[in-house]
Structure formats: C-alpha cells, structure tokens
Amino acid sequence: MPSLFDPVQIGDLLLANRIVMAPLTRSRAPGLVPNELMVEYYRQRASAGLIISEGTQICAQGQGYFDTPGIHTPEQIAGWRRVTEAVHAAGGKIAAQLWHVGRVSHCDFQPGGQAPVSSTARAAVGSARTPTGLKPLSTPHALSTAEVGAVVQQFAQAARCAIEAGFDAVEVHGANSYLIDQFLHDSINDRVDAYGGPVEHRARFVLEVMAAVAAAIGAGRAGLRLSPVNLARAPAGGDSQVQLLYNHVAEHLAPLGLAFLHVVEGQTGGPRDATPFDYSAMRERFGGPWMVNNGYSREMALNAVAEGRADLVAFGRDFIANPDLVRRLRLNAELQRLDRASLYGGGAQGYTDYPSL
C-alpha cells in the first residue's frame, strides 16, 4: 500500500508526497495584494506535496475579512505570480483557493457599501472584524437567478487568473458556511427557484461552478473543498438529508474528472464525529483522488493512506508552526507549538519566523 511520503498523481499534477498544506487565512495582505512577506511564507513550506493557498477572493464582492488577498485584479495576479515562482523555485506545487464568502461579510467590505450577497436575504450569525471595529454581519441581498449565473462565471474567470498567476491548480472553496455552502444547506437556502428546495436544486450551484472552472482551466487542475457537517454560522436545528445531498454532489462531480475532492471531516478545528456522516459512501460516489482534513496526527495520517482511506492528508495548524512539517513527519520529530496570538494580521512574527530543524 502507498505511504504518506510516496508520490501521487492527482489530475494533471504529480506530487512529491501526499502531505498537503491546507488553506489558512492569515490576513497579511494590506491592500488585498500578495506581498514579499507572503512570498517567503509560502516558499518556506514548499516541501508539501501541494500547498493550497489561503482563501483568495474571486471578486471584490467576495471579501469578508480584513487584509485577505484577491485574484481578480492585475496587481493581485502579479503579486501571486511572485509567490508561485518562489514555491516552484523551491521545488513545490501550489493551488489557489478560490473564495467567495457570500453573506459572511459586512457592508464595510463591499463595493460602494452595498449589502453582501447570498442564497438568502437572512443574515448569518456572527460578527465581522471591519476596519472600524467588530460589527454584526450585514443582512445580505439574495442573488437573483440571473445573478447566480454571473457568479458562476466569476469563479471561472478567477480560475483563469490563477493559472495566469502561475498556480498549478485551483481549489474552489465550497465549505465552512461560505457562499457555496449557503446554497447547499436548507437551513440557510430558502429559495424557490431552480437553486432552492430539493437536493437536486440546492446542489445545482456548486455543480455549475465546478463545470465552469473545469471548462476554463481543465478538470485536471481543479479541485473542490466541502464540509458536509460544519455549519458554524447557520441557524440552530441543522439540515435535512445531509448524506443524500453530499452523495448527490459527489456522484455528479464524478464525470468531470476533477483533480481532487477535499473533505473536512466533522467540525473544522473541532469534533470529528459529533454529527454522524458516512464519508466512505461519499468517496465511493466521487471515485477520484480523495483528500481528508481536520486534526490529523502523524499516526492518523499514516494509517489513513496506508489503509486506503485517503489519497492525501491536509494539515493546517501544524504547517503554520512547522514550515518543514514534511521532514518532521518523516523523522517523527517533535512539532513546534502554534502561537495563536499571531494568527491573523501583523508581520513576520508568528508567520515567517518559525525555525526549521
């Protein structure tokens, strides 16, 4: 059986190992443009089989957090090109995570101070850290049917921009209560058009996005991240038919031949098994390269690959504190602890100053 440290082919990409750096928001892009500090941060972690970038806005409307980079202007493309060139020079591969937060935003982030957009006109639970302080998330505008189609094309255009910037692939962010999730889950989606109601309708948006992205850059360079049971900003009560929904999505993604499906098991950064879900049933329907995520230890990751339960394992917090995580996992060396105080915003401290072995 394969090892965590063996090469693997996913779509068009041959990866040196099966260890993936998960997407990690760090809020260190003032002006929303990648900078030299980010170049060094990603370069340090290029030993990963694949780096997935921090969430990267596909359009100005897609922003919901301070100092997070985009991938939709010439300046952003040029900034990301410096990042990808550094990663490639260090022997690594990197994918851009394409992000639209939907209603998890505030008017202060939106062009002209307009309302954010979503599948619904109901506000999400929670607050946004805006340039002028912490504020409740804004009430969104429910996208019209025609506007949904325009957002699908924004994802496709962002994918083209990512390839122009030198990324090896893209990962569409369909997890963690952001825009795609806001269509998938019926605790949020209250639409009555072709994108709301039964499972087949709620799945339509993500399937259209992935078809458009695959058509734009090739399916072998396109992946998707999903989190079936992680809905931190949804109303209490949960969703109906979650297993049916995600089995349907996986089954209808299969014909596209995507590079990978990246699945968050359980609650992001929290319990893995609080909500029952059969990930193996979903994987069987997808049939392609399968990436797992959420609190994996070295032993868990080794076993998941060796037993054939995963093709790749994504590590998040461990990659923040250990730029040489691949080497440390090979040697079973001690891992450095994360400095939580420096996670979001700031400079080199807690970002590029973690030492390697």
Rank of each mutant, 00 (worst) to 15 (best):
residue 225 R to H: 07
residue 109 F to H: 08
residue 190 D to M: 02
residue 206 V to G: 07
residue 290 W to Y: 09
residue 44 Q to F: 00
residue 258 L to Y: 05
residue 125 V to S: 14
residue 74 P to Y: 00
residue 326 V to P: 02
residue 55 G to Q: 10
residue 348 A to V: 00
residue 205 F to H: 14
residue 155 F to G: 00
residue 246 Y to C: 07
residue 308 G to F: 06
residue 201 H to G: 03
residue 125 V to E: 13
residue 129 R to Y: 13
residue 119 S to M: 05
residue 297 S to G: 11
residue 297 S to L: 06
residue 351 Y to F: 15
residue 4 L to I: 01
residue 61 Q to T: 03
residue 248 H to K: 02
residue 180 I to R: 06
residue 88 H to P: 08
residue 42 Y to D: 05
residue 91 G to L: 10
residue 99 W to S: 03
residue 119 S to K: 03
residue 168 D to L: 03
residue 5 F to N: 12
residue 207 L to M: 01
residue 291 M to F: 08
residue 300 M to Q: 15
residue 291 M to D: 01
residue 25 T to C: 10
residue 63 Q to S: 10
residue 178 Y to R: 03
residue 224 L to E: 07
residue 210 M to N: 10
residue 316 G to H: 14
residue 235 P to W: 10
residue 109 F to T: 11
residue 151 V to K: 02
residue 299 E to H: 02
residue 135 K to W: 15
residue 242 V to K: 09
residue 83 V to I: 12
residue 305 V to Q: 08
residue 5 F to E: 11
residue 101 V to W: 04
residue 59 C to E: 12
residue 136 P to F: 13
residue 5 F to M: 12
residue 264 V to R: 00
residue 59 C to I: 05
residue 51 I to F: 07
residue 276 P to N: 07
residue 100 H to K: 01
residue 44 Q to W: 00
residue 205 F to W: 12
residue 158 A to Y: 00
residue 188 I to P: 14
residue 24 L to G: 06
residue 64 G to Y: 03
residue 288 G to F: 06
residue 134 L to W: 13
residue 90 A to P: 08
residue 20 V to E: 07
residue 98 L to A: 06
residue 300 M to I: 13
residue 288 G to Y: 06
residue 282 M to K: 02
residue 146 A to W: 01
residue 180 I to T: 15
residue 131 P to C: 02
residue 139 T to E: 15
residue 15 L to D: 12
residue 220 G to E: 06
residue 94 I to L: 10
residue 311 D to I: 11
residue 340 R to P: 08
residue 125 V to M: 13
residue 280 S to T: 12
residue 81 R to V: 09
residue 226 L to A: 10
residue 193 D to A: 04
residue 267 Q to H: 13
residue 259 A to Q: 01
residue 182 Q to A: 08
residue 48 A to F: 12
residue 199 V to Y: 12
residue 126 G to H: 01
residue 118 S to H: 07
residue 229 V to S: 00
residue 97 Q to K: 05
residue 183 F to C: 04
residue 38 M to T: 00
residue 62 G to I: 02
residue 297 S to R: 02
residue 101 V to A: 15
residue 89 A to D: 15
residue 340 R to E: 10
residue 175 A to W: 15
residue 46 A to T: 04
residue 83 V to R: 13
residue 118 S to P: 09
residue 308 G to C: 09
residue 257 G to I: 02
residue 308 G to A: 09
residue 208 E to D: 09
residue 202 R to P: 08
residue 221 R to D: 07
residue 177 S to N: 04
residue 274 A to R: 04
residue 244 L to K: 13
residue 336 Q to N: 15
residue 156 A to K: 03
residue 71 I to E: 03
residue 263 V to I: 08
residue 345 G to L: 04
residue 340 R to L: 09
residue 237 G to K: 04
residue 266 G to D: 05
residue 163 I to P: 11
residue 123 A to I: 14
residue 72 H to V: 11
residue 332 N to W: 11
residue 31 G to I: 04
residue 96 A to I: 11
residue 135 K to R: 15
residue 70 G to I: 01
residue 285 R to F: 09
residue 56 T to Q: 01
residue 204 R to D: 13
residue 307 E to P: 10
residue 174 G to V: 05
residue 349 Q to R: 14
residue 62 G to L: 00
residue 164 E to G: 11
residue 67 D to E: 13
